[in-house]
Design a protein around this nucleic acid. Structure first.
Lengths: 192, 192
DNA sequence: TTCGTAGGCCAACAAGTGTTGACTCATGGC
DNA sequence: GCCATGAGTCAACACTTGTTGGCCTACGAA
């Protein structure tokens, strides 16, 4: 239980721990919370289901440890203001395609209360601040950030979860070209 | 087994059948496919779980019978073309708030293959035709309809499923005002 | 070499799932 | 009034789930 030297010493268990987290992310992303069983995750990781409990306490703890999201939104403040929409779509698209955690969170959030709350937290802590620095009137920032969320999450939903064919077949460039003006308007245009 | 006079004769069982379907829709909408158990649905309907099997065969059959969506999109062709975006948002918003089936389908579609396919079918059979009559170039209709779907489903997701606060607090009028130009552009503006 | 301990497996539990078949009760046409 | 038939209940099945506790094993410090 001595974790004081965790940064230098590499315990043998760290490898399995990592394998469990990796398998958990894949399963949550592919199946959602309920159908991602601990037994299936353990089998993917090549260990016994009871190991999962030893390391993460219970299934909720596993989810909490496996699904942590850092959107890594770049410093929008340094961009010319009219480029913000384009930068945001491009960044989200890249994040989403390299990182299955986002799909996992979206799938889980749709049927699981804890997942939905996690998503609300990410919105509040990571997307809202962007709107606060970009929007002309800070009072309107939450509503504008909410609008941005509807478009970005809707893209992710139709493309990566529901897989509606035309949304899947659009190229990255096309998506950026179509959505950038939408986000730009939601963030900076005067209220309609 | 004589169903030839089903339109005139009202069998006694029709009441329970209806109660089961109603309860099923509520449960699917609130919990998604896995957590909406047949036992819970039966209890809500005030009957025995085995009745559900008798009437609908199995859980899949129940879902198929309970969740059928008719978007009832009005005749868009008769509108002035620049009003299409506004009409579409307003109609979807109304449909979504009066009909829990849509939320059920969205929740289920996020974690269930059959649910996702159902949603693809609705897109293909009910939304795509609108784009085909409205878009200038029919070749581009699928992509444009897909873009419309990203925005409309994203709104539903953030507002009715994830319940991200600013998306919940927007009034219907604000949503229409903000989203109408987006849909209008996706449907009729020249490709960017 | 010894031995405490961390890492791991096995078998089982209790609860909950979809699903089935036998049984009871009412009801309406003859 | 009789009785076939539809409506409904009950108890159980086979299985899966998260979770637990006991046991074995290998390693690294003493």
């Amino acid at each position: 239980m001595n974790g004081n030297d965790s940064s230098t010493t590499r315990r043998r268990s760290d490898a399995t721990r990592g394998a469990i987290l990796l398998a958990a992310r894949e399963r949550f992303a592919a199946d959602g919370y309920e159908r991602a069983t601990i037994r299936a995750i353990a089998k993917d990781a090549g260990i016994d289901p009871s190991m999962v409990m030893r390391y993460f306490g219970n299934k909720e703890g596993l989810f909490a440890s496996a699904v942590t999201v850092d959107l890594k939104i770049p410093d929008i403040g340094s961009l010319p203001r009219h480029e913000v929409g384009r930068a945001l779509v491009a960044h989200f698209l890249a994040m989403w395609e390299e990182n299955e955690v986002l799909t996992a969170l979206l799938r889980v959030g749709a049927t699981n209360q804890a997942g939905a709350e996690r998503m609300q937290g990410i919105f509040r802590d990571q997307l809202l601040p962007v709107a606060l620095t970009v929007c002309p009137d800070p009072e309107q920032s939450p509503a504008r950030a909410g609008l941005v969320a509807t478009q970005l999450l809707g893209l992710a939903l139709t493309r990566y979860v529901l897989r509606i064919p035309p949304a899947v077949e659009l190229s990255r460039e096309e998506i950026v070209a179509w959505l950038a003006p939408t986000l730009q308007r939601y963030l900076t245009a005067p209220s309609p």
